[in-house]
Design a protein around this nucleic acid. Structure first.
Length: 688
DNA sequence: ACCCCCTGTCATAGG
DNA sequence: CACCTATGACAGGGG
């Protein structure tokens, strides 16, 4: 059993294949380990993601709704076997296919191989698939699969019916004049089937029903095809051959509607030379139009293949995202979503059916994340409101103080709770530090989203500063707005709930994240409440977050406009100093880790470079040794032919060959050569 | 009990 | 000189 290189990884190929098979009424038993190049790398086996989150055992490749393209999945070889390193020669293959007078333009290797199989009478499966292959080509599956950048006409309806379609025009050229109508109708019917199947793929929840419908239409189209074949006896020989009994049996009787992947591989792994046995370019006259079509840029097969959109293009060319997958750039900010999206795959995810979020496109992940987190935060907020007073049971908080915090008009509501929360405004990722934006370490929106998810797992709470951190001081009102805006834009709070979860553990289960985070949160809550408690005890009418974040001018004016005792001023300045230093320390640590990661990357790159240089050095040594050997052989060959005046052979140990500047070769006694060498060495030493 | 990691805080240097 | 930032060092807590 040979396995081909995963040529379908060029983009959409596997989907194309499955569509072909589905059109043929065949059930595909995919036994592939698919992994998507999405973070997190999630493995699927025997279950493939469909747009909309449902899965199907038959259709591969995930669709990216935002980009409108089909993402590239890289299927591993089945059963962990090695791929045949020999790749199918696609260019030659296409030429030969076209030379066959195929009435459709193969747009993928799948088409091409199927046509080859049929043309060469290779295997029942190929025969069975031909109709589907023709349909796929005529319907422009490639364009549909590509979704984005396919140059060939695609889209809805029947693109091939349009006379303006270059592909259709070429197909018209290639058709046998005796049966244009049959071909058009044939193609059209297949195109409709294909569209049906494509819709099936796009609506995974209904795909079984649609599959049945497609199968029904398949049978209809096949019957139509048979009728057409009966009508047109002057069809090309290859096309007459394709309607074999085996295919009809498979199609119409449905006795063998299951095509295992191994069968499929066997079918497709046949070399085109084998498939084209007896059918070579020399045997078949090359229509000029075909060659022209071949050379035309519109229908260049390799171009058509290369225009398939792979996952990278679908993902990373999406204007909405700036994600990178460069592992070397792991410390860069743009890759932060990976780390944090990784945390979305949560075994305890509270939303059943979304456990495949890791496979969803990133932007949809983020959308889901946003919705889920929003709802989750709503729950948390409600929960926090309900358990607000439970704070009093923890730490040193006095119930009266807590109540006063939200009742006293003079007491800033954010002082001891929300401001405390805000005072912990630092960016943290679950697995590593993230690069900060600018010098302040504010996280990006995406990071906040993901972080939100993470911190939602520990009971996230999103304080609304405009509501919770308000003060009556006009001098800082604009700062409040700015602060609120910063919270909206750079949400890097810890989202600490106001209630103590352990005070009501049964009412709320911590979703997802580990106990470690929870305990750290409690630890943080206890430790960081020191300044809050101080401020509260001194009735400082500002939140810690305000105190820390406020620009120095606003801070000074705020202090000057309020009558504050020396103790209050001292505590406020301490809070500000500590808060700023805390953020600075966090940024410093992030930078340190960043430097560390970069150094690791440098080490890795330098090691790779060293290995390359060592290989080159070994090659150079080898070449030098070869040249030395050649020179030695030549030397002795020359001496073997030399004779002295008496006709005796010249002893190479006594004489040496010297090449003069004019190209002549002299025989010089070795003593003379050595003495010259000594002199030259002495001269060189003197110069130095 | 020990180690490791994370985080906050302090002291200090430098801008 | 005041302020801010960066960073090393230390402490404390949790796993």
């Amino acid at each position: 059993m040979k396995y081909l290189k995963p040529w379908w990884s060029d983009g959409g190929g596997l989907l194309h294949l499955t569509i072909l098979l589905s059109l043929a009424g065949l059930r595909v038993d995919l036994d592939l380990d698919l992994y998507l190049l999405l973070p997190p790398r999630t493995w699927l086996q025997d279950e493939l993601l469909l747009p909309g989150g449902s899965t199907s055992p038959a259709y591969a490749f995930s669709h990216f709704p935002a980009s409108g393209g089909w993402g590239r999945a890289e299927p591993l070889h089945p059963k962990g076997r090695e791929w045949d390193p020999a790749a199918p020669p696609e260019g030659q293959l296409l030429r030969e296919i076209r030379a066959l007078g195929v009435p459709f333009i193969p747009r993928t290797r799948v088409d091409a191989w199927l046509v080859h199989s049929v043309a060469a009478g290779d295997g029942d499966g190929a025969h069975a698939l031909l109709g589907a292959a023709a349909a796929s080509s005529s319907g422009g599956v490639g364009a549909s699969v590509d979704g984005v950048s396919q140059a060939a006409p695609g889209g809805g309806g029947d693109p091939r019916a349009s006379p303006s379609s270059p592909l259709a025009a070429e197909e018209e050229e290639e058709k046998t004049p005796a049966e244009p109508t049959a071909q058009v109708s044939d193609a059209g019917s297949h195109a409709s089937e294909e569209n049906e199947v494509l819709r099936t793929v796009e609506h995974g929840s209904q795909h079984e029903e649609n599959e049945q419908r497609a199968s029904a239409q398949k049978e209809k189209s096949l019957q139509q095809e048979n009728e057409d074949e009966n009508k047109t006896a002057e069809r090309p020989a290859w096309e007459a051959e394709k309607t074999t009994e085996s295919r009809n049996e498979r199609y119409q009787n449905g006795t063998d509607t299951s095509l295992s992947l191994e069968d499929l591989f066997q079918l497709l792994s046949s070399q085109p030379e084998d498939l084209l046995e007896g059918i070579s370019l020399g045997d078949i006259p090359l229509p000029g139009s075909i060659n022209d079509g071949m050379n035309s840029p519109t229908h260049d097969f390799s171009q058509a293949v290369s225009q398939d959109v792979n996952l990278h293009e679908a993902m990373f060319l999406c204007p909405d995202n700036t994600f990178r997958r460069d592992p070397a750039a792991r410390t860069s900010q743009s890759q932060e979503p990976y780390l944090q999206l990784n945390s979305n795959v949560n075994p305890e995810q509270p939303f059943p059916g979304t456990n495949l979020t890791g496979l969803l496109p990133l932007d949809s992940q983020i959308r889901n994340l946003t919705r889920q987190d929003f709802l989750f935060d709503l729950d948390i907020n409600i929960f926090d409101e309900i358990n607000l007073m439970s704070l009093a049971t923890e730490g040193s908080f006095d119930p009266m103080e807590v109540s006063q915090l939200f009742e006293e008009p003079d007491s800033d509501s954010g002082l001891s709770l929300d401001s405390r929360l805000n005072s912990t405004s630092v960016t943290k990722t679950n697995s590593s530090y993230s690069l900060c934006e600018g010098a302040t370490g504010y996280s990006s929106d995406l990071e906040s989203l993901s972080q939100h998810d993470l911190e939602g797992a520990v009971g996230g709470y999103y304080a609304e500063p405009s509501k919770l951190c308000h003060t009556d001081h006009g001098s800082v009102s604009h700062f409040h707005e700015d602060l609120a805006l910063q919270h909206l834009i750079h949400n890097h709070t810890y989202h600490i709930p106001r209630s103590a979860p352990e005070s009501n553990p049964e009412s709320f289960s911590w979703p997802g994240k580990s106990q470690k985070l929870r305990s750290r949160y409690h630890d943080r809550e206890r430790n960081l409440s020191r300044d809050e408690r101080r401020a509260k005890a001194l009735h400082i009418p500002f939140s810690v977050d305000e105190i820390v974040r406020m620009p120095v001018d606003s801070f000074n004016s705020m202090l000057s406009r309020n009558y504050l005792t020396d103790l209050q001023l001292s505590v406020i300045r301490d809070i500000r100093r500590r808060g700023k230093n805390k953020v600075a320390a966090q940024n410093c640590r992030k930078r340190k880790l960043d430097v560390l990661f970069n150094l690791e990357d440098d080490v890795y790159n330098l090691k790779a470079k060293k290995e390359t240089l060592q290989r080159e050095q070994a090659q150079c040594h080898k070449a030098i040794n070869i040249m030395k050997q050649k020179l030695h052989d030549l030397y002795h060959d020359v001496f073997s032919r030399l004779r002295d005046d008496e006709g005796r052979p010249v002893n190479p140990s006594q004489y040496a060959l010297r090449c003069s500047h004019d190209g002549s070769v002299l025989i010089v006694p070795k003593e003379l050569v050595t003495s010259r060498h000594k002199k030259q060495n002495q001269k060189g030493k003197r110069k130095h």
